[in-house]
Design a protein around this nucleic acid. Structure first.
Length: 817
RNA sequence: GCCCGGAUGGCGGAAUGGUAGACGCGGCGGCCUCAAAAGCCGCUGUCCGAAAGGGCGUGCGGGUUCGACUCCCGCUCCGGGCACCA
């Protein structure tokens, strides 16, 4: 066969052509309506894995589809190129993180290009490029000036053996250091934070109206964690000048407070602890400091609620009575006020603690009949033992308790969020330096704007000390204070890589703008991203940080202020698993795309990822997978033969129904594929193309009019173009000498969708009994008549009159006996 | 514990309350061939039956409806998220 399809040659040729012709490049003055499709920019870990392939295939289908629909689609690509693996590789004796990273970028870029996914490469962003770093630092300083970046003490994982900070992943589940085996402790360090909590309310409230998967919105809501309650202060009985402030969601249960608790980190612990209790309290605080987050937060195994009496009491403002004040590690320093009123009868944690420490338990809400007596009751009910709240329901009692606190001048209603400020300091080399200087006289001084970007020094040694090489690099560290000129030191921490990924999508609008991080006009044209695509793994952190950053940048004047939400639509693809478990490089269970590029080509692999199942579902890579990919490849060959006129007319073929029937199928397929792509139903879009192909085969075999067949083939290639772009382009080019990707997307004509005759289903009592071919325009009376005339029906009726007839012409008649 | 998803042939999966199982994988049969591969055509939920035909079928138990994979109530199992957040 002289027209054999040479996959490698054809795919390479078209990829070159699309790039040379700039088919998928867009400019600001493009007359077409703009849109923006974006796949999450990847961390470059080497050649693409199947998860990347799936992500970029979905994105590319949307880019090519929207392009055929006449839009100027912004489709950029970049690399999240700072991060730990490059530094770890350097420590293990590999290349410098820059060389290492750039080699991995080249590999990944190779895979992406081999896939035939089209991007405007003029816009490529790499977060380790000096240009990007510069704007990252400019943004940081703007946030600092606006009070959205601040420095505070925060606990970190500290390894006493390595004398360094560890990332959470470096702490083993048993709380020891993965390198030295020492017990990791929590130590407070001055670190940089972004004030994301300023936006907690807005980030939560605007979720409601967003066109995002419900699942993702729920996860964000949980993460932000809004809770409504009251905050009030209580006098310390032994020291009347001292007050303990607490937050509660149940001010209505105040009469049941039989003790109060401070977190071990609470600043007043020392002041309220009496000499007799000092040893016990100190021991508890020491243990809390050594406990890992996991131990501290785990409810498992923490049978006795670890706590200690301070020796002091505070006055319950509701009863006026003193209650003992404890320190306990089940209260967190970082939430609310770091202190609580404990109501054992209505809170299970307090109940368990009270039981263990022999503290009184007083019910203030009447539990329902039959409620077990050995547990807290946190539900609703009439208040008892509650003074002026007695007899009230929960809502009313809350309101009255709040009034009481306000009238007494000790408290007020308060909304608390679980969301904490974003800690961005990383004690690492391979990240963007935080551009500040510490001066003994002037304190924290921003790096001067004309010195940005602060670059990473190249001449560093990577030693397995766990410490960032920046700390010991004199040339980097030592500077003169920009204010007073005296010797000072640079910040050696770098930024969390989530900072880089929180605004790259804004930079893509005009990545070479030299006047600011975000070009206002370009951002106004393209933002928000119409379609963002990525894994569910980023449902919380990345998406939340990006939403925060977009707002913060707007508020400090670095991006359009009216732009609040960066991603109009979010699509989360499913994961790829190998026989059940997640595919990952570290597990060594990766199935490389390369062998498929070689064996069946990019189009077949793309088709597999589209066809394998719903795009949102996880797919399992099994023994059957290769066979399905083979099937996809076979299908494309079948299309190729059809387009090449290699399908013969068969003498004994059955009548396929003629031109009208073929046209109906074609327009039906157009309608289905369009709707399917719009709703990410790629698997059914492929199925619709396969059905159309099968139909056209039948028509060719049966000798249906050539013009109608040609029309059908033309449309089929157009429908396939976004999904199998190379084959569609090559076949279209050979047949019509035109570029399929610049064709207008076909439109279904409803006039062609209606058939003259349809199969009507006849049911008796809802069960299928007969099928009758009827005119599509059949009336209800005619349909009923035909149904009753059916032999099957009269047999079942046995002469009796039907009780009822439900007729839905022309599709169905149901005879009820 | 709380909050979300999901459960359909041997397998991946389709089905605006109206023909369950589209499409594909696998399997079986036929055509082509000296033969094979490729290709093309057909069959393929399950049980009874030689067939015609019929019974049963969308995790389980109820309900609504002329009609339920689809809607409602109550379960089971699986997956995911959150979880000492006061």
């Amino acid at each position: 066969m002289s027209d054999a399809y040479d996959v490698q040659e054809v795919e390479a040729r078209w990829q070159r052509r699309w790039e040379d012709e700039g088919t998928y490049e867009v400019n600001l003055d493009d007359p077409r309506p703009p849109s923006y499709v974006l796949s999450m920019y990847p961390y470059p870990s080497g050649p693409a894995h199947q998860g990347h392939i799936r992500n970029y295939t979905f994105g590319d289908v949307l880019v090519r589809y929207r392009t055929m629909k006449g839009e100027a689609v912004l489709s950029p690509f970049g690399f999240d190129s700072f991060g730990l693996p490059a530094e770890n590789a350097a420590i293990k004796g590999g290349a410098h993180p820059r060389e290492y990273t750039e080699a991995r970028i080249a590999e990944l870029k190779g895979s992406v290009k081999r896939l035939g996914a089209m991007y405007d490469w003029r816009r490529e962003i790499r977060s380790h490029d000096p240009d990007y770093m510069k704007w990252n630092q400019v943004i940081f300083l703007a946030l600092l000036e606006a009070g959205l970046a601040y420095r505070a003490e925060a606990p970190v994982n500290w390894c006493p053996g390595c004398k360094t900070v560890l990332a959470n992943e470096q702490v083993l589940p048993d709380g020891t250091c993965e390198r030295s085996g020492d017990i990791v402790e929590r130590r407070n360090l001055e670190q940089w934070f972004f004030k994301i909590t300023n936006y907690a309310e807005e980030l939560l409230d605007s979720l409601e109206a967003m066109d995002w998967p419900e699942r993702v919105k729920t996860m964000q809501r949980n993460w932000i964690g809004r809770s409504e309650g009251a905050q009030f202060k209580m006098q310390v009985a032994e020291q009347p000048d001292l007050y303990i402030e607490v937050f509660t969601t149940r001010p209505d249960t105040g009469f049941g407070m039989t003790y109060a608790v401070l977190a071990p980190e609470h600043p007043l612990v020392d002041q309220v602890t009496t000499d007799e209790q000092r040893a016990a309290v100190a021991e508890l605080r020491e243990r809390a400091k050594h406990a890992t987050d996991i131990e501290r937060l785990s409810s498992e195994g923490a049978l006795d609620k670890r706590g200690a009496f301070t020796g002091s009491h505070c006055i319950n403002p509701f009863t006026g009575e003193p209650v003992p004040l404890y320190v306990a590690d089940y209260v967190l320093g970082s939430y609310g006020t770091g202190a609580i009123m404990a109501v054992p009868a209505e809170d299970q944690r307090d109940y368990e603690f009270a039981t263990a420490y022999g503290l009184p338990i007083v019910r203030t809400v009447q539990p329902p009949e039959g409620f077990a007596d050995d547990a807290a009751y946190s539900g609703e009910g009439p208040h008892i033992n509650s003074g002026f709240l007695n007899g009230l329901g929960t809502a009313e009692a809350k309101a009255r308790a709040n009034e009481f606190l306000e009238d007494s001048g000790i408290g007020y209603p308060k909304i608390n969020y679980r969301l904490r400020d974003w800690l961005i300091s990383r004690q690492r080399y391979w990240g963007c330096p935080i551009p500040v200087i510490y001066c003994p006289t002037d304190g924290i001084v921003p790096a001067p704007a004309d010195e940005l970007p602060i670059l990473l020094p190249e001449d560093v040694e990577f030693l397995p000390t766990g410490e960032s090489p920046l700390r010991s690099h004199e040339g980097f560290l030592r500077v003169n204070c920009p204010k007073c000129g005296k010797p000072a030191v640079r910040e050696t921490d770098t930024m969390d890589t989530f900072v880089d990924s929180s605004w790259y999508f804004l930079r893509f609008a005009d990545p070479h703008d030299e006047t600011g991080p975000v070009n206002m006009a370009a951002a106004r044209r393209y933002m928000p991203v119409d379609q963002y695509i990525g894994g569910i793994t980023h449902a919380i952190l990345h998406l939340l940080y990006a939403r925060f950053y977009t707002r913060a940048l707007g508020d400090v004047g670095l991006s359009p202020k009216e732009l609040r939400e960066p991603f109009a639509q979010m699509f989360c693809q499913g994961m790829i698993r190998l026989r059940g478990s997640a595919m990952s490089k570290s597990k060594g269970n990766v199935v490389s795309p390369d062998e498929y590029f070689e064996k069946v080509g990019a189009d077949a692999l793309r088709l597999f990822h589209l066809f394998a199942g719903p795009a949102t579902d996880d797919i399992d890579w099994t023994d059957q997978t290769d066979e399905i990919i083979e099937g996809c490849s076979r299908y494309l060959a079948r299309v190729w033969r059809l387009a090449n006129g290699e399908v013969p007319r068969l003498a004994d073929a059955a009548d396929a129904g003629g031109v009208a029937a073929l046209r109906r199928e074609v327009h039906g397929a157009v309608a289905r594929v369009s709707a399917d792509i719009e709703r990410y139903g790629f698997n059914t879009a492929v199925a619709a193309c396969m059905e159309l192909t099968n139909t056209i085969y039948k028509h060719v075999h049966a000798g249906t009019d050539e013009t109608a067949v040609d029309e059908a083939v033309r449309t089929l290639l157009e429908l396939l173009a976004p999904m199998a772009p190379h084959l569609a382009a090559e076949a279209f080019d050979r047949r019509y000498a035109e570029h399929v990707h610049t064709q207008a997307w076909p439109v279904a004509d409803p006039a062609y969708l209606v058939a003259d005759e349809v199969t009507m289903v006849v049911q008796v009592n809802g069960k299928l009994r007969d099928r009758i071919v009827v005119a599509a325009a059949i009336s209800e009376a005619e349909a009923t008549e035909l149904a009753l005339a059916s032999e099957k029906v009269s047999e079942l009726l046995g002469g009796a009159a039907p009780r009822r007839i439900v007729a839905k012409p022309p599709h169905l008649v149901n005879v009820v006996v």
